[in-house]
Design a protein around this nucleic acid. Structure first.
Length: 318
DNA sequence: AAGTGCTTCAACCGCCTGCGC
DNA sequence: GGCGCAGGCGGTTGAAGCACT
């Protein structure tokens, strides 16, 4: 038996909010700000618990909330961030101005998740799963049978489901003969996603960030990742194209291409400097850092968004 | 028009974390 | 360090609306 719900304790009202309640809450917060949620309902003349008020405000009444359908860009951002952050809805929401964690969570569960499943992509791992994949997608992307790492979410968009258990079994058999150790394969992908999400020691030497005509020169090297260092990335190869638009936290690369060299010791099998080309147009986050360690530390919490790949070819590692 | 099943999303629940004492 | 509280978070629920028969 868990803790009794806070609203039950005092017989407070539950359920949908009325326009009158909304008005009371808005008026109170506009006048006093949203300080103590515990005392707010009483002061605002509401028979609600503070938690309910907070939720109503943050998820619905806040003036900066963007309503309406999610754009394609927003959807793509959600997918990319989810592949890195998992169900950290608040963290994802923090990168989508005007969207709430609740809204993103609902949208994920009602739209994106189902679509990924239809496309044969596991919505948890973001990896292709042949047992989920429909036949038309398989036929349109035969390389999936040879190397399931070579999948491009964008190319899979819009496929209609068409399932044939017999063919899926055949496909799985084919795959098994091509790829002896899928677990190993999956582990190879993960460190790269890990890198993209938390590479804390990327060093963009000579980088310049400004409001317009942004440039970012990564001509030197990535500083190898931290001490725990299961994977390190050095020498981001030229060229990183000029950044064409930006605000304080968003940068967009014009040609959606990023080349870098990967040195990894994953799986206790060192692999030296295979070059991996990353294409496509999804976004993820790379921590910025500056040239000195002190400055770098101060920047580590600051995220910069780039157009980065959702197509990741790790076949060279196999 | 009525019944049924499905989808959506606002709201709730319970757990976790951080903070003050 | 332990405790209690408030706020935050992710998972879940259920009413309302919609689509289909």
């Amino acid at each position: 038996m868990g803790r009794a719900p806070c609203c039950d304790k005092e017989g407070l009202k539950k359920g949908p909010w009325t326009p009158e309640e909304d008005q009371k809450l808005i008026a109170y917060i506009q006048k006093h700000g949203c300080g103590s949620w515990r005392t707010l309902p009483k002061n605002a003349g509401l028979s609600r618990c503070g938690k309910s008020c907070r939720l109503r405000w943050t998820n619905y009444l806040r003036p900066d909330i963007k309503r309406g359908r999610f754009s394609f860009e927003e959807e793509e951002t959600i997918i990319q961030l989810h592949s890195i952050l998992g169900n950290k809805w608040s963290a994802i929401a923090a990168r989508l101005p005007g969207r709430t964690d609740n809204e993103i969570k609902n949208y994920w569960n009602t739209h994106i998740r189902k679509r990924l499943l239809r496309m044969g992509i596991d919505p948890v791992t973001h990896s292709p799963r042949l047992d989920l994949l429909d036949l038309s997608t398989l036929l349109a992307n035969p390389t999936l049978l040879i190397n399931p790492s070579q999948y491009d979410i964008s190319s899979l968009l819009g496929m209609e489901p068409l399932v044939s258990p017999e063919l899926l079994r055949l496909a799985t058999d084919l795959l098994s003969s091509q790829c002896q150790d899928l677990t190993e394969h999956a582990q190879l992908q993960d460190p790269i996603a890990q890198f993209l999400s938390d590479s804390q020691l990327i060093q963009p030497n000579g980088s310049q960030f400004g409001p317009d005509g942004m440039t970012c020169d990564f001509s030197e090297s990535f500083v190898p990742a931290a001490a725990s260092n299961t994977i390190s990335y050095d020498n981001l190869e030229q060229p990183i194209p000029q950044l064409v638009s930006a605000d304080s936290s968003n940068f967009y690369l014009p040609n959606n291409q990023l080349n870098y060299t990967v040195t990894t010791s994953v799986l206790s099998t060192p692999i030296s400097s295979p070059t991996t080309q990353l294409n496509s147009s999804s976004s993820t986050y790379i921590n910025s850092s500056s040239n000195t360690e002190d400055e770098r530390d101060s920047y580590c919490s600051e995220l910069f968004e780039f157009q980065v790949p959702d197509l990741l070819d790790v076949s060279e590692f196999m």
